[in-house]
Design a protein around this nucleic acid. Sequence first.
DNA 1: TCTCAGATAAACAGCG
DNA 2: ACGCTGTTTATCTGAG
Length: 579
Amino acid sequence: MMTPQVITPQQMQQILQQQVLTPQQLQVLIQQQQALMLHQQQLQEFYKKQQDQLQIQLIQQQHAGKQPKEQQQQQQVTTQQLAFQQQLLQMQQLQQQHLMTLQRQGLLSLQPGQPTLPLQSLAQGMIPTELQQLWKEVTGSHTVDDGACNNHSSLDLSTTCVSSTAPPKPSLLINPQASTNGQASVLTPKRESMSHEEYMQSHPLYGHGVCKWPGCEAVCEDYSSFIKHLNSEHALDDRSTAQCRVQMQVVQQLELQLSKDKERLQAMMSHLHVKSTEPKASPQPLNLVSSVTLSKTASESSPQSLPHTPTTPTTPLTPITQGPSVITTTSIHNVGPIRRRYSDKYNVPISSDIAQNQEFYKNAEVRPPFTYASLIRQAILESPEKQLTLNEIYNWFTRMFAYFRRNAATWKNAVRHNLSLHKCFVRVENVKGAVWTVDEIEFQKRRPQKISGNPSLIKNIQTSHAYCTPLNAALQASMAENSIPLYTTASMGNPALTSLASAMREELNGVIDHATSNGSDSSPGRSPMQAMHHVHVKEEPLDPDDNEGPLSLVTTANQSPDFDPDRDYEDEPVNEDMD
DNA sequence: TCTCAGATAAACAGCG
DNA sequence: ACGCTGTTTATCTGAG
């Protein structure tokens, strides 16, 4: 089976010729990618801003009362900059109005940053003049119209947009055209016309102070500086055109993957005789359409092939990469290596990620972007008593992640391996057997090695877990604030999807006999800590300086236990492939 | 290129 | 004997 990462442009061309995507599919893909990019940038910017604010505060404190002259000079410069920026803004607005007029007249139809139409021609080897023309269109029209829908391209996708998402957040729905969808009321008109703030939020290459050009994450304080940055750093040159071409290919790969996954889903549905919910009828499973590979197709050839695209729409709401950008030229080349690892090192709080994307992970057979150790820890921390038996850990995996409902022998072995290997997992014997707990200190010890690039975050993580809690909260707040219709609304808010997923689950549950479960889950009657009478400390005991022993290891419960009371998967046999 | 961490596979032992 | 649990070793891979 051909894997996306080895697809050459020629192959892609062939595939594209064979598989004609519907406008809806295209739109879904584009939305996914855009939302993903946006969200990743939001997170990155969130981190950066926190850092910047800290640094600014520090600098201000240091310079307070020390060098008032410098401050005055700085203020002068700032004032000048503001005046200049205002001029730029005015120019920008004029340009924008002009372009809007053009678009109304039908002279401009291409979506900024989402060159859907020229995709194929590009893939088929766009000649420089074509690229230039495209580039002109892109750079020209990106000041026009944009927003969550981005559906005013030549492809009429407005229905897809409207139906596929719950009412988007204002930040994502701010263009005048979108108001025709009846969403204009969400806007808070600060100016008579579309305000600059609104407009700049809608720029596909600019989000929350960060340039979203693939591979670029330059911080632009405001929109005018972003425009300057765009014109200076991303002018029409070889590099930019190459990046544009890469972006095209990225989109195409996503399209290809989507179409294939859709085919799989169709085949699965027909195979499982699921009739009621026609997948393509549901207007949006933005997350599921692309990633619900409840079948085993993707991993048949290579079990690790699934997680190969952290930048694809299969990625749930929480971004995984913190790297250069959502989509970089390198990411293209890196797509697909087997055993791809990500996650922990990307500073994504696992609890918030899982919480945010719970339904996604439950239904989509996508490998969670966290290491086994992180997942095990999360499972244990989520438990009421911060302790789980091995079997309960297994159950948590299968309950929370569709991915772990397959290849049980593999990942269970990995779980056991991790439990034994990592000192952060402490086995505690109680009357009923052994349970596993987390040595949070040990766990945090190993993280600094993995986190690079953000000292403040490292510090956050190292200092105390409690310190992480507000960070998580702030992060989640930020995520909620900038919620994108990609996953949250499409999956969680989509009853059709939920019913589809649950229907399939029930179908599976009905078929599989619970009696074949691999163990008894005794979680309801978990024995209390007092019942423990023996603590098995691993070979390297904790340093006495590290204070508390294993029994006081887990002190934080920053996440609400989201155990499913129904415990759908608790006793569900892990449908291993080999059985 | 080297090192390290993680993933995976597998062998093995203890236990019920 | 069998399966589960837990440990350990080896190998491969990706990333820094």
